[in-house]
Design a protein around this nucleic acid. Structure first.
Lengths: 197, 197, 197, 197
DNA sequence: AATGAATGAGGTTTCATTCAT
DNA sequence: TATGAATGAAACCTCATTCAT
């Protein structure tokens, strides 16, 4: 093994460590933001919960708001990757059902992320474009669903899409607010029945 | 006119003044909270926007959080008053339609209030019981709607109610986030069609 | 005495107090800035030295830089008032001598102010216009002196003015750096001899 | 070539590298200190501007203040070397003129250094002895100039020296503050005329 | 009841310096 | 020697709340 390789491995190890710590901070902050709120969580608390020094977080994120953006963007990247494949072709009942079930799975898998996401979506203090950027990326998906609704003979398919998306949002929010009492699975079945038969 | 009456009038006038100023503070704070966020709005700004002294607000509300609770409770009182009469009897298609249309009207009439309301509903930093209290008051209404759904032969009527309510929530939030582009009226008609025929 | 008058007196008293406290903060900050440097002096130290709470300074000055500007501007206002009258008419030997002696007096009377002033003049971090504004106000005075030098037959009177002013600056700075060992009075006489005979 | 020589060359090369890097850091820091101010320049910025790692600077200078001292001392060593030869003998008109012209040349050649130097001379936060040491080294030179002034029949020659030095300082500072508008050459001639004829 | 100056805890952020690699 | 992540003290500033007038 040459010296070069050793150095490369060391660098790569440092990189790995850095990535791991970045992920640690993001996870910690997501957990705290979603349970205590963005303003209710101090950078000090994030640092101490993550077991690092206060100043260290600023080696990874330039500011608190930057950290927040990173959380949302990272999560959203994950999301789109997992959804895109469902829409490569024209939608039919089968893929629509997959989409609905997948959506519910996403919410239940990462409740903290979604709690934060929806809280932010309503907050007025974020830079306008922050959420707008995200919404824009979903446009093509909405278009596909509209096609699908049209093919099923729905009148006013675009309004139907908005209603459909809002319904998923509303259900998600209700579930996230009180996960233990909300009949999320029953509701999933009702929606599958309503939209995919 | 007796001295007594004079005093009564004076008191009543003072009361009125007090009530008016209380209402002024609530209106101002609601406006600011809903546009700049709760944490983005300082007590100083509320006072100066309302044209009164900073210290004076504390003659009407013990704390900032108290002011927030008062805003929500006042608004909610208004809400229930306006809704209760719809449910005195067993519910039918007609009153269900009225209820849906009324719900949309409420949202569109006081968007600031509802923006704040939904933001808080998702926020985790409020005392748990705060929103719970409000939800509890809606229980009887939910029960009536469940009866109605059952009478229409819906399977699993309680889940249907939750879905129905979540849908209204989701639609409301979507509308409040972007009022100008959201086909709120079309969606209202779709829901009336779906639930009241 | 009417209620109105009482209120007016109370307000006026409060105003007086406020002015006094503002002056107290300015004096304290000037003292500290000039001895420990602007960056070496924390707002906390200013407050505690002045015997008030940390946050209180911000009731009088919006920021540390604002406080600095207020110090310079207040001092400069004082300065121009005291100098302007010397230049109402065309300058002669007599008024030139007065001006020189007055300049030395100013420096010796408020060494802290001038130490701060010259330190800032050299500092590169201030907004450009900050010092420029001040210099601009001195332009008319320079013009008068140039006239005077011209009347005495000096060649290149504008350069002579610059040199004259720079000399006063250099002498001031030297004196302020080491007041106890600097023959400020002897130098004053030399300059009077050189420029006013 | 013996092994010894090879080692010597390697060491010498390492020394050279070390000196070069030291010089690089000093140059970079001087540039930044003089344009952004000492407090406005972070060690990180110096390192990154110089293209080395943050921690490495501490292999050359024990602290930020040490670096500053090194800058001043290095520059001053350079200065005295270049001036000393002017004063080996008794001073006359010719060498006095050389000295004045040389002083102006120094300022115009290394404005950054002098901007920093004068800024520090006024700053109160440096250890007292820091500037005092430097001034002390200039004493012999001042004595020579005093002799010269005495030989020309100036009264109070020591005060004349102080005034002369302060004048050079004041002119330098004025020039450094606004190099483009200051008639530095005209002023040089005026001084040569005044002091060397 | 009204005022607004005073308070000080607590927030975010910076940065000189250290140290493991 | 070089690196750059880690540290934590300390800075500036905000703001809910109190209280003397």
């Amino acid at each position: 093994m040459t010296d070069q390789s050793v150095i490369k491995i060391m660098i790569s190890k440092r990189e790995t460590n850095k990535d791991e710590k970045r992920a640690l901070i993001i996870d910690t902050a997501l957990q705290l933001f979603s349970t205590e709120g963005y303003f209710g969580t101090s950078m000090s608390k994030i640092a101490s919960t993550a077991g690092i020094a206060k100043g260290s977080t600023y080696n990874y994120f330039a500011s608190k708001e930057d950290l927040l953006k990173a959380i949302i963007n990272d999560g959203f990247k994950h999301l789109t990757e997992s959804v895109d494949y469902l829409f490569v072709n024209f939608i039919d009942d089968k893929s629509m059902e997959k989409y609905i079930r997948h959506s519910f799975k996403l919410i239940m898998d990462k409740p903290n992320y979604w709690r934060l996401f929806f809280a932010l979506a309503i907050q007025p203090w974020l830079p306008k474009h922050f959420m707008a950027d995200i919404m824009q990326k979903m446009e093509p998906m909405f278009a596909k669903i509209a096609e699908y609704f049209a093919s099923k003979g729905f009148l006013n398919p675009m309004a139907q899409v908005m209603l459909f998306v809002s319904t998923l949002d509303g259900v998600s929010i209700s579930y996230l607010t009180e996960p233990e009492n909300y009949p999320i699975n029953d509701i999933c079945e009702i929606l599958v029945e309503r939209y995919c038969k």
